[in-house]
């Protein structure tokens, strides 16, 4: 399946660009994180804490919903899906 991924800072720094279109053979968001960490090693420290768990400091939107409102890392991705990765921050 083909996915369109959009990264904002600091994830875009690790990837080297903001938008990536990729072929993906997996099924879930968790698998996608693993694939991306392999492909972009600098992403690994942004996605995972030292104990190997996925960091609190990452929000992923799958189309128009955060995966936290779906099935979390088990949320299934489908052909044509768009994902947005951003850092949770507030301010004014």
């Amino acid at each position: 399946m083909r996915l369109k991924l959009e990264f904002t800072k600091p994830f875009s720094d690790a990837v080297g660009r903001k938008v990536v279109e990729m072929e993906f053979g997996g099924n879930t968001c968790g698998e996608l994180l693993e694939r991306l960490s392999g492909e972009y090693p600098a992403l690994s420290t942004k996605f995972y804490d030292e104990d190997g768990s996925v960091t609190d400091y990452l929000i992923i939107f799958l189309n128009d919903k955060p995966i936290s409102a779906l099935e979390g890392l088990d949320s299934e991705v489908r052909d044509g899906d768009r994902l947005l990765f951003f850092f949770p921050i507030s301010g004014g």
Binding site: K9, L84, F86, F87, P88, I89, G91
Partner: peptide
Amino acid sequence: SKITPILGSVGTPLLYEVSNAF
């Protein structure tokens, strides 16, 4: 917290990109 160094290096302009992408 990972938020503290991000705010200290980029400040709130980081939010613009997030809101815009959204």
